[in-house]
């Protein structure tokens, strides 16, 4: 048929003929978005289970000054997270977590600056900002390690049990701060987030090495920095939610 020859001459360009980019984003970036969407479900489920557990426990209704740790009620976060490295025995509610939040927001900014430098094909700037991001990410991980160590060890006072004994610190079955479930969720949620930060730092180190070796410059674009950047901002985003629902509310 004569129509066959015309179809061979012209490339197909209909909606379903392939070659269309309705989302105007590269394959890699699109897949990173979808991965992050699925990750958002995981973190969302974690935080919602935290809310569920909280609603199934008695809230503390007394005066905040008279608050004492008990397995009867859910603890007030300000009374749990009030320690700061080097300032032993001082009551500094949420001070350390504020520092951690600032570090993570700052690392997000240096990450955008690296992406921006990548758009300009400025290899030196990309290296510089990636290095800052790695530094802030590693600092955040160090802070979290300290916080975990403190949470696990507990303070001198501990929690007075009904039989007169005291428990100190927390693990998956015993918790001086409140119901054991509180400690479990702390370990799972901040631990899962910390694992993400750790993976992010590993990815950042990998793309830093590639940048130094000029891999992306030879390739002609720094899209890999953008993709890891998306992941890194997502980790920051999750922390914003963890911070609110775990430490503030």
């Amino acid at each position: 048929m004569s129509s066959t020859s015309t179809t061979l001459e012209k490339p197909n360009s209909g909606t379903w003929d392939g070659g269309n980019e309705p989302l105007k984003a590269s394959y890699g970036k699109l897949m990173m978005w979808f991965f992050l969407l699925s990750d958002a479900f995981t973190f969302g489920a974690f935080l919602i289970v935290y809310g569920l557990s909280r609603h199934t426990h008695l809230p503390y209704n007394g005066e905040p000054e008279a608050f004492a740790f008990s397995q009867q009620w859910w603890p007030i976060p300000e009374k749990v997270y009030n320690a700061f490295p080097g300032l032993h025995g001082m009551d500094l509610p949420l001070a350390f977590v504020a520092l951690m939040t600032m570090i993570l927001i700052l690392s997000s900014v240096t990450m955008v600056l690296a992406v921006e430098a990548g758009h300009r094909m400025d290899k030196n700037d990309v290296q510089k900002w990636l290095l800052w991001t790695i530094l802030f990410g590693a600092t955040f991980l160090g802070c979290q390690a300290w916080e975990w160590a403190h949470f696990i060890t507990g303070d001198e006072e501990g929690m007075l049990l009904a039989d007169g004994s005291r428990i100190f610190g927390a693990n998956l079955t015993v918790n001086q701060y409140g119901p054991p479930l509180f400690a479990d969720l702390f370990f799972f949620i901040t631990g899962f987030h910390g694992t993400h930060v750790f993976s992010g730092v590993v990815l950042l180190i990998m793309i830093f090495i590639n940048t130094v070796n000029g891999v992306y410059h030879k390739r002609g674009h720094y899209e890999m920095v953008e993709k890891v950047g998306l992941y890194w901002h997502f980790v920051d985003l999750v922390w914003v939610f963890v911070f609110t629902f775990f430490y503030l509310i």
């Binding site: 289970v49 809310g51 569920l52 909280r54 609603h55 199934t56 426990h57 008695l58």
Partner: peptide, 13 residues
């Protein structure tokens, strides 16, 4: 999920 499980938690409590 949030609305559903928070309501569920309150009901259970």
């Amino acid at each position: 999920l949030m609305v559903a499980l928070l309501a569920e938690g309150s009901y259970y409590f």
